[in-house]
Simulated scan of single mutants.
Amino acid sequence: MNDPERDGGPGDPLEPWPRTVPWQPVSRSLIWVELVRLGAGLGVLTLGVLIGWALTGHWAFAAGLGLVLLIAIWRGTVIVRAVHAWGYAERDNDLLVRHGLLVRRLSIVPYARMQFVDVSAGPLERAFGLATVQLHTAAAASDARVPGLPPAEAARLRDRLTALGEDRAEGL
């Protein structure tokens, strides 16, 4: 009746995010951070198109303005869905980090392989009360990051990962 192969269990190669793991979502405030970043970039682009239109009056700039609007709507939708796709899970021996819409990515970082853990927060993240936890390992390709965490959770996760990394690395 319950077939783990069919239900997206560990044997399903098309479902990279195990459903048996208790995923922790990132803060929904990350949506606003990303939308503000998008707005700033598209604002500059819109200003350039409007200046070109005002100087030349060419119809191509009006079409460009429409294109910028379509890009804004599309990217806004993608941002909301992408933030909902982020998650992390702490297990006994490793940390799992998932993200991605079109290309789903699951990073599994063993605690014993972690070299150090960074917590960062830029001005925009701080304005929304968020921080990013970045894990660093010997192999750069296996680094993982968890954005959109409240500062208290980021500090807790940093301290826990550091302690677990030290405990697991002692046996190496």
Rank of each mutant, 00 (worst) to 15 (best):
L55Y: 03
R105V: 00
D92Y: 01
V80Q: 07
V44W: 06
A152K: 11
L47F: 09
Y88V: 13
D118E: 14
H99M: 13
V133I: 15
L50A: 07
L101G: 02
N93K: 12
P123M: 10
V78N: 04
I71F: 14
A72Q: 06
A138D: 08
V83D: 00
F61D: 02
L45A: 14
E125I: 01
T137K: 03
P150V: 11
H58V: 03
A152D: 12
D118R: 13
A89P: 06
W74N: 05
A72V: 04
V133G: 14
N93I: 06
A141V: 04
T137R: 01
R126Y: 13
G66N: 07
A54R: 09
A82Y: 08
A63Y: 02
V68I: 05
I71H: 08
G76Q: 04
V78W: 10
D143F: 04
D118A: 07
A121P: 05
L130C: 02
T137F: 01
W59C: 09
T56G: 04
E125N: 04
A60F: 10
A82M: 10
D143Q: 05
W74S: 05
V97R: 05
A82E: 10
R98A: 01
V117L: 05
W59E: 15
P123V: 15
I71R: 06
R145C: 08
L55M: 08
V133N: 12
G122A: 14
P151L: 13
R104H: 05
V44L: 06
V109S: 00
A72T: 08
S120G: 07
W86P: 00
V80Y: 04
E90A: 14
Y111L: 11
L45V: 06
W74T: 05
